[in-house]
């Protein structure tokens, strides 16, 4: 436990010392928030955004985007960089267990996601008059599950992608596709059939719905949750199986 906390604390300090990653994870979603807010403001449209105001729709979606950016870009690049440079080799020769390494990555993801969520909410609520979450308890549960899901995907990507370059390439492509079609870009109602089909394959779509439901006052969608749980469990098991130290 002491080891895990210490490792997590060191990893957090390392994250803060890495300005590019910090910027991408925390600042990029804010920029997108301002762009979308500037274009659509927050008047409800019965034919788009699940019938709610655009910014009511996008605020939980961009919390999802921060979480996705951690899992698709930050974590895989970090882990594969450790592998490529030989940091994992050194850790492997020490008494630390691979699950402690995974756990510390999950805890770091949580801290970053919480900071990102607070910043987005603190900007969106006053600037665009975004409504407060309807069911805070369920929203927090959805948030925790979302972070775990993308941490699990991130650990899998970081476990199998051999180099930093590979992780950056794959991660950024996945991130931008999901950003565009999974709920962070144009409203799902205006997308064509192939785009929607593609979106159905992305975990971010379900994570965004899971975050939006309690925020907007829709009821908890069990089928949607089941899909998210699948995106949590399957990559988690695969990473334990396919993790490579070098």
């Amino acid at each position: 436990m002491r080891t895990l906390l210490k490792l997590t604390w060191v990893e957090l300090k390392l994250f803060v010392r890495e300005p590019v990653t910090m910027f991408f994870t925390l600042v990029f979603p804010i920029i997108v928030l301002f762009v979308m807010g500037g274009v659509f403001a927050n008047t409800p449209d019965p034919d788009a955004w699940r019938g709610v105001g655009a910014m009511n729709f996008y605020t939980p979606a961009y919390i999802g985007l921060v979480i996705a950016s951690i899992g698709l870009v930050g974590l895989p690049v970090h882990l594969s960089g450790y592998r490529e440079r030989g940091v994992l080799r050194r850790l492997r020769a020490s008494p630390i267990h691979v699950l402690s390494i995974f756990s510390s990555q999950i805890l770091v993801s949580f801290v970053i996601a919480v900071v990102g969520a607070i910043v987005i909410t603190a900007v969106a609520m006053p600037v665009y008059d975004v409504a407060a979450p309807e069911d805070l308890a369920l929203l927090l549960a959805a948030f925790v599950i979302s972070v775990l899901t993308f941490a699990s995907i991130g650990i899998l990507l970081g476990s199998v992608l051999p180099t930093t370059r590979a992780a950056q390439g794959v991660g950024l492509v996945l991130f931008f596709i999901m950003f565009m079609i999974s709920g962070g870009g144009p409203p799902p109602e205006v997308m064509n059939e192939p785009m929607r089909r593609l979106a159905d394959l992305t975990p971010l779509k379900y994570v965004i719905i899971m975050l939006q439901d309690p925020w907007l006052g829709f009821s908890w969608n069990m089928a949607n949750f089941g899909i998210v749980a699948g995106f949590l469990v399957v990559p988690g098991l695969l990473s334990v199986r396919f993790f490579r130290w070098e």
């Binding site: 390392l14 890495e18 030989g86 940091v87 080799r89 020769a93 020490s94 008494p95």
Partner: peptide, 17 residues
């Protein structure tokens, strides 16, 4: 691992640690 110490010929630590 708990009982041994290792200095490896090739390994690294995070750049900013």
């Amino acid at each position: 691992r708990a009982l041994m110490g290792s200095q490896l010929q090739e390994s690294a630590l995070p750049d900013r640690i």
